[in-house]
Design a protein around this nucleic acid. Structure first.
Length: 949
RNA sequence: GCCCGGAUGGUGGAAUUGGUAGACACGCAGGACUUAAAAUCCUGUGACUUCACGGUCGUGCGGGUUCAAGUCCCGCUCCGGGCACCA
């Protein structure tokens, strides 16, 4: 009987669904194991072959754990809110809910066809009101809590208000941006609006002014990566930075815990280091400088208080609120111009300018706290408003940027650190001996840092300070297709969160999905929805994509619960994710927010774990091959030139060729034949009249004309590895591969491509090998005429050895997520069993169970044929027995001076001295030793022998 | 510039963590079956050298440690990813 995969796959997909084979219960005696994939955004183009790589790996592991006796939660869902659906809506007028639904259904079909063992009864969509109800609920909790640094956890705002009523904000240690002190009486005297403003500085979800990339022409706010050189990527319109009141999440309150938590989780070192850098914790001091002629002081943050005697100027961020007051009338003009110049530059540009420092003198002076000398104050774009205090004490001798600035503006440079004892130290290393620095001269840098901090604390002008690069997270989007922020404002503009009873707050229907003229989100168009009957108004911003994905893994534990984000029992049972698989492009955004929300919900006692993902594997990207055709436009005519005739590609324009037209796709020699050229020319109207020049002739108007006798029509295309995407016309659809080779083959092939974390270009060069392997495996059970070959005979010792070796290898490889080597292990086993002519049921049954996680369809079919009632996927995983692995003799490689010269078998129990003596008398050894003498003879039992001459 | 990864046959990749480099697969070559082809099966396949037995070289480059290095150490080159006036 032939191995007919399409029939088998269809049959078992239906059976698994009907039997609920992969449904998992929240009640079990088995230990739990939670395997999760980063859920996809369901785009209109469906899955390509790159997506399933991680899904297949995690599915194999989930199936493996299930067979190993765990109760495995392995769900899937969709990150269904997002920009592409909204842009599609703006262009095509289709409601995002409709296109999203269509796309998710297509994804579901594709995912099922791969044979992934998801419990589809737990499927979620972040855009479903039943789901986003709880996203909104968590937002209201963030709004109703502040961060108590003493208790090191989130606490209710109510408690904060009670504290204010008693004590004002004296002796309060909370995460806040509020600077002033107030008493209980002050608090009582504050208006409702003033109280609201004060509390906003404490809430974990709060409103504040942030700058956004505003594009007037598009009438919308753009993300950083949609802006290039100050112009919108789409349409090339000018983009300006505009201050806008926005919602933020106070993630910085959790900075330390997010940093510390990294120590407890099993992620790749690179991922952890990305997060560490993102958090960017630094230790230093806050020092306040007096200002000449002003009451106020200027606070600066520095990691190098020891260099304070080297300060020769100060620099403020151009947006710093003190700039206006410091600037003298004479400098006003220049400063205003500079501020204006900086405002016109995007954050990217400001950061990209490294060589050429710019700035402007304000005319104002600060007073050095120790020397009492006046220090000129400048503004410059290299100081960022949002980092530290937005102002620095500049030490040109010990900081490259300060140095460049001082040189440009002719400012004095005082050497304060002598690094001659540390020849390898760089400028930024905190080592050296302090010089030219009054009372700290002669100290080592670390001691000097301590001494200055002690002094400024004693003088009451400073304190030790910790600073983070990480900023509070902008949480507002002026978009339609996201969770509405569940906030209403009363007539005074005081914000209130909606109670749970009023959630979910669903998206209103809007006449148009574009933003309003004044920059409000499209929700602003739903006038009746925004304006409540009692005069209150709704917030019109929506949440970003990271909101729904920050907690989705919890929802899978109890996806249909309408009374809680997840039932207490369910979430306590499943807890956090044991294995999380996804791309490293989510290193900061998604993974950081998820960790933050988890810690917050932990603080509130809703969950009993404070990290979402215990182990995380980054799957590599599967790249596509981009096929490029070179062309020239002359007098409005298009000439395509075959790539093998192109010397310098810079002389030509380039065009992506849809890969389905290309022969020998992915190879250097890839080309368009006559048929391909016809299709390509017909595909784009501009090309219908084009000429295609190649070595043997030319192609025009659907006709090939050879210029050489017997010339072949081969228009060579240039092949290049790159991202797989719709716009490059190079996506490869898993459906086609599955139709041709079957899902088992597709699964195994993706694994066989190499280690899971590695990126690699997609090609089907080796897929035949897997296909052959599966047919050979099948052939152990059925011969070509469909005769059942499996016997009840006792297996031979050789066959047992092959089986148990394979089990051992596969178990070992599974535990280290080395799926590619598992596949070669199976191949070796099948090759061996074939040679041994083994058809023993005992052996084959174990092989079926062993391979079940990789090839779920063929194994299920054979399992039934072997006479089993239940599913192989609910059976158990085989284990190996060392007794079958004992070798009677071991082949020892014999090396002479480290070079292998022979392989000699010795009994497995041969003693070291037995082997030594035997080796000495070996002919080959004699030959190599010759008339020299053996200096040393090393025998590593069970491994090898090395003779040193 | 800084911080992480990586580099092994024609190709994808293996190597039990210092112990037979190149498993497995693709590709290629030769052969069997066939009227022929496909499919299938068998054999060979790192390079150089040799009629052959064999020998020499060989894991990006240059050093080192060791009886023994793809694996450890030092110094580079190239490729991929992340961060980048962060005070």
């Amino acid at each position: 009987m032939e191995f007919n995969f399409s029939e088998i796959e269809k049959k078992w997909l239906a059976a698994w669904e009907q039997n609920g084979t992969y449904q998992v219960s929240n009640q079990s005696d088995r230990p739990k194991y939670y395997v999760l994939d980063m859920f996809p955004y369901p785009s209109g183009s469906g899955l390509h072959v790159g997506h399933p790589l991680g899904y297949i790996a995690s599915d194999i592991f989930a199936r493996y754990k299930r067979l190993k006796g765990f109760n495995v939660l392995h769900p899937m869902g969709y990150d269904a809110f997002g920009l592409p659906a909204e842009e599609h809506a703006i262009r095509m007028g289709v409601h995002p809910a409709i296109s999203t639904k269509e796309n998710t259904e297509r994804y579901r079909e594709q995912l099922e066809s791969i044979g992934l063992s998801f419990d589809w009864s737990r499927e979620i969509r972040t855009s479903d009101p039943s789901y986003h109800k709880w996203t909104q609920w968590i937002f209201t909790l963030l709004f109703e809590h502040y961060y108590d640094k003493k208790a090191d956890k989130a606490k209710p705002i109510k408690e904060l208000v009670a504290y204010f009523e008693q004590n004002g904000n004296r002796d309060l240690d909370a995460a806040t941006t509020y600077e002033e002190l107030f008493s209980a009486e002050d608090w009582a005297a504050f208006s409702r609006k003033e109280k609201d403003e004060v509390l906003m500085h404490y809430r974990l979800a709060f409103r504040s002014v942030g700058t956004v990339n505003w594009c007037e022409a598009l009438g919308t706010v753009l993300a950083n990566d949609q802006v290039k050189n100050g112009l919108s990527e789409r349409g090339q319109h000018p983009v300006e930075l505009r201050p806008m009141t926005q919602w933020f999440l106070r993630i910085t309150a959790y900075a330390d815990r997010l940093l510390e938590g990294l120590k407890t989780i099993d992620w790749t070192e690179s991922l952890k280091s990305i997060q560490r850098h993102w958090i960017g914790r630094s230790e230093g001091a806050l020092v306040k400088f007096d200002l000449q002629g002003l009451e106020e002081q200027l606070p600066v943050y520095t990691t190098r208080p020891d260099t304070i005697f080297g300060v020769t100027f100060m620099v403020l961020a151009p947006e710093h609120e003190l700039v206006d007051r410091i600037t003298t009338p004479e400098q006003k003009e220049e400063v205003n111009q500079y501020v204006k110049y900086v405002a016109g530059r995007s954050e990217r540009e400001r950061n990209a300018e490294v060589k050429d420092v710019t700035g402007s003198f304000t005319g104002g002076y600060a007073i050095h706290p120790f020397t009492k000398k006046p220090i000129p104050i400048y503004i410059s774009e290299y100081v960022l408003k949002d980092y530290g205090t937005g102002a620095i004490m500049a030490v040109p001798s010990d900081d490259e940027r300060d140095m460049a600035f001082a040189k440009k503006f002719g400012i004095e440079i005082i050497d304060v650190i002598d690094k001659s004892d540390y020849p390898n130290a760089t400028l930024s290393d905190k080592v050296g001996k302090v010089i030219n620095s009054d009372f700290i001269t002669g100290m080592e840098v670390p001691d000097a840092i301590e001494e200055i901090i002690k002094r400024v604390e004693a003088m009451g002008i400073g304190r030790r300070g910790v600073n983070y690069k990480m900023r509070d997270a902008g949480f507002s989007r002026q978009r339609y297709w996201g969770e509405p922020i569940p906030i209403v404002y009363d007539a005074d503009g005081v914000a209130f969160s909606l109670p749970l009873s009023e959630l979910p707050l669903e998206l209103p229907d809007v006449p148009e999905f574009k933003p309003t003229a004044d920059g409000q989100s499209p929700l602003g168009r739903a006038v009746d929805w925004v304006n409540l009957p009692d005069g209150r108004k709704r917030e019109t911003d929506t949440m970003p994509g990271t909101a729904g994905s920050a907690w989705y893994f919890m929802r899978y534990t109890d996806p249909h619960n309408n009374d809680a984000f997840a039932g207490k029992e369910a979430i306590d049972y499943w807890q956090n994710v044991d294995l999380y698989v996804g791309g490293s492009e989510h290193a900061v955004a998604h993974l950081m927010y998820s960790r933050f929300w988890t810690k917050f919900l932990y603080d509130l006692g809703y969950i009993n774990f404070d990290e979402p993902f215990k182990k995380l594997i980054n799957q590599g990207m599967i790249q596509g091959i981009i096929e490029i055709a070179f062309l020239k436009k002359e007098n409005g005519k298009i000439r395509f030139i075959s790539a093998d005739m192109v010397d310098n590609r810079k002389d030509f324009s380039e065009f992506f060729v849809p890969i389905e037209f290309v022969s020998d796709y992915g190879k250097e020699t890839s080309y368009l034949d006559e048929e391909g050229l016809r299709k390509f020319a017909a595909w784009n109207v501009d090309f219908a009249k084009a000429t295609f020049e190649m070595k043997d002739g030319y192609f025009k108007d659907g006709q090939f004309t050879p210029t050489k006798e017997g010339g072949q029509c081969r228009f060579v295309t240039h092949s290049e590895a790159g991202k797989m995407s719709k716009s490059r016309y190079n996506t490869i659809n898993p459906d086609d591969i599955i139709a041709e080779y079957g899902a088992d083959c597709f699964r195994m092939y993706e694994m066989f491509l190499g280690p899971i974390e590695q990126s690699k270009p997609w090609n089907t060069n080796g897929i035949d090998g897997i296909s052959k392997f599966l047919r050979r495996f099948w052939a152990l059970f059925y011969d070509a005429d469909g005769k059942w070959l499996v016997t009840e005979d006792a297996p031979s010792p050789e066959a047992l050895k092959v089986l148990h070796q394979t089990i051992k290898k596969v178990l070992f490889d599974m535990e280290r997520f080395s799926f590619n080597t598992c596949v070669s292990g199976f191949m070796v086993a099948v090759n061996e069993l074939r040679k041994l002519n083994c058809h023993s049921k005992e052996i084959l049954e174990d092989m079926v169970r062993l391979m079940a996680p990789f090839a779920p369809f063929i194994t299920e079919e054979l399992w039934t044929k072997l006479g089993h009632e239940g599913s192989v996927h609910l059976s158990s995983y085989p284990d190996f027995d060392e007794k079958y692995l004992v070798k009677s003799s071991i082949d020892y490689p014999i090396s002479i001076n480290g070079k292998k010269r022979a392989v000699v078998p010795f009994p497995a129990d041969a003693s070291k001295s037995d082997i030594e003596n035997a080796v000495r008398s070996l002919e080959i050894v004699q030959k190599w030793v010759g008339d020299k003498e053996i200096k040393r003879l090393i025998v590593v039992p069970g491994r090898m022998v090395n003779v040193v001459v």
